[in-house]
C-alpha cells in the first residue's frame, strides 16, 4: 500500500489541478514548478476546464496487476483545451468507438484499489466522450 504517494497527489488527481506560469501564462499539467516553456518558477495553482480531445488512444487487453478488474480499458493521450497533453483512461464509452479528435471531458472516477479489497480506493481523473444536452 502506498498511502502517502496517492494522498499527496489527491487534489491534482481529483480535479486536474495544474499550474499557471506567472511569467509566460503557460498552463502546466502535471505540475512541475518550473515552466517548461520559459524556465521560470511556476507555482500558481490552476484548475483546468477538463475539456479536450483525443490525440491518441489504445485499448489494453492484458492489464497490469491491480487493473484487471476493469480490463479491457482504453488509455488515451488527451490534448487539453488549455494546451497540455494528459495521459488518462477513457471511460463510459459504451458502444462508442474511441477516435482521434473525439471531444472528451474530465470526470473523476475510481482509478483502482491500492492493494486488495481491504486497501484504499484511489480516485482520479478520467475522460469520457463529451456529453451534450438533448
Amino acid at each position: 500500500m502506498e498511502i502517502p504517494r496517492h494522498w499527496r497527489l489527491r487534489q491534482q488527481r481529483y480535479g486536474l489541478i495544474g499550474e499557471l506560469c506567472p511569467h509566460c501564462d503557460t498552463k502546466i499539467f502535471p505540475p512541475r514548478d518550473i515552466c517548461p516553456a520559459c524556465g521560470h518558477e511556476a507555482k500558481t495553482s490552476f484548475a483546468f476546464s477538463g475539456r479536450g480531445e483525443v490525440f491518441s488512444f489504445t485499448t489494453i487487453y492484458e492489464a497490469p496487476t491491480g487493473f484487471e478488474e476493469t480490463a479491457p480499458y482504453t488509455v488515451a493521450l488527451v490534448k487539453l483545451e488549455e494546451g497540455p497533453m494528459v495521459t488518462a483512461q477513457l471511460t463510459d464509452l459504451g458502444d462508442d468507438k474511441p477516435e482521434i479528435g473525439m471531444p472528451v471531458e474530465m470526470i473523476t472516477r475510481r482509478l483502482h484499489s491500492d492493494g486488495d479489497e481491504r486497501g484504499m480506493l484511489i480516485y482520479g481523473y478520467k475522460f469520457r466522450p463529451s456529453m451534450k444536452a438533448v
Partner: peptide, 13 residues
Amino acid sequence: PGLDEDVVTMSLE
C-alpha cells in the same frame, strides 16, 4: 454504474 463508479464518483458529478 460502470466498473469505475461508486457513490463517491457519482456524488462528485
